[in-house]
Every structure is written in C-alpha cells, then in structure tokens.
C-alpha cells in the first residue's frame, strides 16, 4: 500500500477536526493541563500571552523549544506554536520538534516586511491571520491550511475580530453574486490569486477552516463569532488573564458548542469572576496595533 505523508488534505484535515472548538494560549504545562481539562481542542504554547507582549514591548520571538516540548509532554491534544512572519528558520525549528500546527503570527515581531513563509515546503501545517478575503487567499496561496481572523490580540476587545470576520464573509457573499466575467477584476481588487477566488466562488466559503481570533474574552464573544459564521475560536489572553481561568475556559468551550442557544449561553456566562482587563482598540495608537502586520 502506498503511504502519502503530510499531504495538503492531511494539513487541512487536522483543522477540520478542531472545528466547533476552542484553541487556548498557554504559557506553562500547568496552564495546558487546565485547558485540556476544560475541553480545549488544542493549545497554543507561547512564553507570553499577547496582553503581556503588548505590555512588555521589545522584540517578540518564537518561544524556547524546551518550553514548547514540556507543554507537548503535558497534554494529549494538539499543540501549536508561533513563529514570526517570514521567519522560515523558526518554522523549521518548530517542525523539527514536532509541533502539530505553526501559527505564522502578527503577534510576534515580523522578521520580513515584504514576504511570508512559503508554507507548501513544510510537512507541518500552518495557520495564518487575515483581515479580509484577499489576505486570506494570499496566505492560502502560500500554503496555509487554516485561516483565522487577526482581530486585535491582547486587548479583550472583540471589535476587530468582528470587523475582520465580516470582511471575509461579506466579500465571499459579494463574490458569489458576481457574474464570471467580473471575477478577474475582483481578484485584482482583492489582491488574491484568481484560481482561489474562483474556488471560493464555487464553494461559497474558504477552501480551508476559518477560526476567529484576537480580542475574544467572554462566552458571549465566542458565540458572537460563531453566529457570524466562523468555524471555531482562538482565545489568547482572555482566559489566563482572567480571575478564574479554569471556569472561564470551560464556559467558553460550552459557548462554542451551544453557540446558538441563548439559554445555555446565559447559564454558562454566570459567575465567571473578573474578565481580563481590556484595552479599547480606539485607545491604541497605530504603532500599537498588531493587525496591520502582514502583507
């Protein structure tokens, strides 16, 4: 029997298994176990959550592989890790230690201001952030097997995640209403590969799984993103920067499963303790915004 390893079907397939689930940022093996116990479908191993990266300033890089390996040992669910935009050697290192997914992330300081990683060359799958359909399809063109909205990480303000999800989903609806002869000009306007534009038009969705990320802090935020039409959510600072991480994590998991049942949402939203202290996006200067990183 012929055995084909790490095909694009395999890469996209793992993301399909994560659908309807919550991927949580964790900085220690203990956090990772709390996340798994709460029902997370995967964890993102990193040294600092986005809220701390934002507060500390300086250059944010790939985490120490030793620390990522400890988290991989601590849990049975998939472990993701972040590399800098364009830093293909950080990605090679993450592949070498065997992480299950790489997030080429705007939350870290970009290593290349013009180019992203050519992701088709890797055996490990990649997830990338986007603000709109053009950006999503450029990343998929480079080989991303999963897409997430960028939102504005480390703020606890969901407004940018909503803006980015509405952009992507709205542009897909627009594309489906266009006659074929207008699609080339629309591809040009989006800055997206034509073949992928035509594929999206046929499917009525992205050809890969599409999660929300960046600013989700409550069960209601998570359910809002699900009702808008994403496949699942990433929660970064929102859990372990809150008063009762285990309880909030479990509540967000339930909110994503029962996203269209307001009675269950009401029940899981009760008595969760203090949410993370947020920062309104409108109070951030342009240099403080991470979502603009990516080309």
């Amino acid at each position: 029997m012929d055995k084909k390893v790490s095909t694009y079907t395999e890469k996209k397939g793992l993301a399909q298994m994560l659908k309807g689930g919550v991927i949580m940022d964790v900085v220690t093996p203990e956090h990772a176990r709390i996340a798994e116990e709460a029902g997370a479908v995967a964890v993102m191993a990193l040294e600092r959550v986005p809220a701390d990266i934002r507060a500390d300033g300086g250059v944010a890089r790939m985490s120490d592989p030793g620390m990522i390996l400890e988290i991989m040992d601590a849990v049975s669910i998939p472990v993701m890790a972040k590399c800098r935009i364009g830093h293909f050697v950080e990605a090679q290192i993450l592949e070498a230690i065997g992480v299950d997914y790489i997030d080429e992330s705007e939350v870290l300081t970009p290593a290349d201001e013009a180019h992203h990683i050519y992701k088709h060359d890797f055996k490990v799958p990649f997830v990338c952030g986007c603000r709109n359909l053009g950006e999503a399809l450029r990343r998929i063109g480079e080989g991303a097997a999963m897409i997430r909205t960028k939102g504005e990480a480390g703020t606890g303000d969901v407004v940018e995640a909503v803006r980015h999800a509405r952009s992507v989903l709205g542009e897909i609806r627009r594309l489906q209403s266009l006659p074929a002869e207008e699609c080339m000009a629309y591809a040009k306007e989006l800055g997206a590969p034509y073949e992928l534009v035509m594929e999206v038009r046929k499917l009525g969705r992205l050809p890969v799984v599409n999660f929300a990320a960046g600013g989700i802090a409550t069960p209601a935020d998570a359910a809002l993103m699900m009702q808008l039409g994403v496949d699942g959510v990433f929660v970064g600072s929102g859990i372990f920067k809150s008063g009762d991480p285990a309880k909030r994590a479990a509540a967000i998991v339930k909110a994503v499963t029962h996203f269209s049942d307001p009675y269950i949402l009401a029940e899981v939203s009760r008595n969760l303790g203090e949410p993370m202290v947020g920062r309104q996006i409108s109070s951030l200067s342009d240099e403080e915004k991470l979502a603009g990183r990516g080309w």
Binding site: K3, K4, S6, G98
Partner: peptide, 16 residues
C-alpha cells in the same frame, strides 16, 4: 491507543 502514529507530521493517507 491514541495518537498511535505520532504527531501531526506523521499523519498519512493510504489505500485500504
């Protein structure tokens, strides 16, 4: 046995 073939990079397709 969970994850019996290893992590994601070992995921595969085959004719059965």
């Amino acid at each position: 046995e969970r994850n019996a073939f290893g992590r994601q990079v070992a995921s595969f397709e085959t004719d059965l």
